[in-house]
């Protein structure tokens, strides 16, 4: 090849462009600092920040699957909320059956019960996700309006099924003994359960990101989000990949449902729909198809809800919409949109 092409080097972009590219990663620390300035009390700020991070991590768990499902196949799945609710109810059934474990003063038994509940919820919602994809989503590929209608319908049916199986009432879901209460460190109240939520959410984020970057399956998913047609032209069946991602995303929604149920200590059939609003905000803020963007978006939503809840409770109700408006005015395609142009 001629010198002209081999020597054509990639110039390092100007500083302003590099800063612009890095900016989304600084939004979370930025919001935290802004919160500290406005709250002006370190221990209150610490308590709220931890609560915000915990809430953000839980939303991330539920939103991560949805963003990949959209990115990979352009499917708008409002039925995602159903998996959150059903996961919570299946998990609650397991936890309420294991009162011997949840009531014991043993962290190992408590965590064991939560783990069992999570596994049961993930199996149930993963299997249901597979069924949902085959029966409800498959016939409406490529038709957004139909997807919205049909998956909304699926969500309503799922809510009614919950009423049928578990009754019409909300179910109180107490946290296991050792996960109740909180530690106080230097005036900062650290709720034990929130620590679990942060650890679990961070572990899932790291695991997801690792498998997307370092495994062949992850490589295929990232390529598929960017240009599914080309992935098919290279000989891979994107549809099968999508079913897999859909099932995994549904299972994560189920996991999120259990964790959110324990977070609120009460579960209802409508909880999925209520959380779905937050989940969609997070997916849109993050940039459709981006797991990293989704993570940042979830933390922003969690922090924003807690800070405004303290500073201006009346504003708190609309704070996430406000956040979305500000971010979309700044970056109309979200913080870190995946390749699709």
């Amino acid at each position: 090849m001629t010198d002209q092409t081999s020597d054509a080097s990639i110039p390092s972009p100007p500083l302003a462009d590099r800063l612009k590219a890095q900016a989304p990663y600084w939004t979370v620390p930025g919001l935290a600092v802004l919160g500290l300035v406005l709250i002006a009390d370190a221990s209150t700020w610490g308590t709220l920040t931890l609560a915000g991070l915990a809430m953000g991590m839980l939303i991330f768990i539920m939103a991560s699957g949805l963003t990949l499902v959209f990115g990979l196949m352009d499917v708008l799945n409002f039925g995602h909320g159903a998996f959150i609710s059903i996961g919570a109810f299946v998990g609650a059934t397991v936890l309420l059956a294991l009162t011997g474990w949840t009531g014991a003063d043993s962290l190992a038994l408590n965590l064991g019960a939560v783990l069992l509940a999570i596994v049961a919820a993930m199996l149930a919602t993963g299997g249901l996700g597979w069924f949902f994809e085959r029966v409800i989503i498959k016939p409406v590929y490529g038709a957004h309006l139909k997807q919205i209608l049909v998956t909304m319908g699926g969500l309503i049916v799922a809510e009614e099924l919950i009423h049928l199986f578990w009754g019409p009432n909300q179910i109180p879901l107490p946290r296991p003994e050792m996960l109740k209460g909180s530690w106080v460190a230097g005036g900062v109240i650290v709720e034990k359960y929130r620590v679990l939520a942060v650890v679990l959410g961070a572990a899932i984020f790291i695991g997801l990101r690792w498998s997307l970057v370092h495994t062949r399956l992850g490589l295929l998913i990232r390529a598929g989000v960017e240009n599914g047609e080309m992935v098919e032209a290279l000989g891979y069946r994107v549809r099968r990949l999508f079913v897999l991602v859909f099932v995994a995303g549904s299972a994560l929604a189920g996991l999120g449902g259990v964790m959110w149920g324990l977070y609120d200590e009460i579960i209802t059939a409508q909880m999925g729909l209520n959380i779905l609003v937050l989940v969609f905000i997070v997916v849109i803020i993050g940039g459709l198809g981006s797991v990293e963007g989704c993570f940042i978006g979830a933390l922003l939503v969690g922090l924003m809800a807690n800070y405004t809840g303290f500073l201006a409770p009346k504003v708190a109700l609309g704070s996430n919409i406000l956040l979305m408006v500000v971010i979309l005015m700044w970056r109309p395609r979200g913080l870190l949109p995946a390749g699709k142009g």
Partner: peptide, 12 residues
Amino acid sequence: FAALTVRENMLL
């Protein structure tokens, strides 16, 4: 695939 490295493009 713009978000993938040259190597990853070839690997696929």
